[in-house]
Simulated assay, not measured.
Amino acid sequence: MFKRSVKFASAAILMAGLAPALATAAGESINPAGEKLYKSACLACHMAGVAGAPKVGDKARWSALTAKGMDALMHTTINGKGAMPPRGATKADDATLQAAVEYMISKSQ
């Protein structure tokens, strides 16, 4: 009985750790706040590629950006770049900004 409980607990822990990766691979947002922020603020530029913003769905462009790593993406998101103002002109906290970036990446793979 104990061995079965340990195996079940180990499997549950493993699956819980993989859940965010599986959600991203399935195209779902890890954090619903990311999708909400994207739809309320980021979409205006990232849907149409305004002023050179990487369009959501552009696999090649996002692949090049993600190759630089999340730290580089967050640096740009927090500090702004080109026509993009810092924090995308929002008051979102870092975690919500990262969730929005992760959402855009998930829709661009």
Rank of each mutant, 00 (worst) to 15 (best):
P54F: 06
D58L: 05
A12G: 14
M104C: 15
P20T: 06
R61D: 15
A21E: 01
T76G: 01
M84K: 09
V56S: 02
G34E: 10
A21H: 05
K107W: 10
K91W: 11
N31I: 04
P20H: 03
D71P: 04
Y103C: 10
P32L: 02
I105L: 12
V50A: 13
R61Y: 10
M84W: 11
P32F: 03
Q109R: 11
T96W: 07
T90E: 07
K91C: 11
A41R: 00
A9Y: 10
D71Y: 06
R87D: 14
R4V: 04
A41V: 02
P85L: 14
S40C: 07
A25E: 08
A60F: 08
S40W: 05
L18T: 07
K107L: 12
F2T: 13
K39Y: 11
H46M: 08
S106F: 06
K68L: 12
A67H: 07
P32Q: 01
M74V: 14
S63V: 07
M47V: 03
A26H: 04
E28G: 01
G27W: 09
T76K: 00
A11M: 08
H75R: 14
A48W: 04
C45W: 06
A25W: 09
A51M: 07
R87Q: 12
A16L: 05
K7P: 05
A23N: 00
E28R: 01
E102M: 07
K55I: 12
Y38H: 00
P20R: 06
A92L: 05
F8V: 14
R87L: 14
S5F: 08
A48R: 02
A48N: 08
C45Y: 04
A67D: 12
A92S: 02
M1L: 13
I30Y: 00
G82P: 09
P86D: 14
E35L: 04
E28F: 05
D94E: 15
M15D: 06
A64F: 09
A95Y: 12
A95D: 15
A48L: 05
F8S: 15
C42A: 00
A67F: 07
E102R: 03
L97P: 02
E102H: 04
V101P: 00
G52V: 12
M15R: 00
A64C: 03
I105M: 13
A92V: 01
A11P: 05
E28W: 03
N31L: 07
R4D: 04
A92F: 02
L14N: 04
K91G: 15
H46C: 09
L37E: 03
G52W: 12
D71K: 10
G52S: 15
D94N: 13
H46N: 08
R4P: 00
G88A: 13
V50N: 08
A33G: 09
E102V: 02
M1R: 10
A44W: 04
V6T: 12
G49Q: 01
G69E: 08
G27Y: 06
L73N: 11
T24R: 01
A67T: 05
T77N: 11
A64V: 12
T24N: 03
C45I: 06
P85N: 15
P85R: 13
A9N: 13
T96Y: 11
L73D: 10
S106T: 08
S5H: 09
A26M: 09
M104R: 06
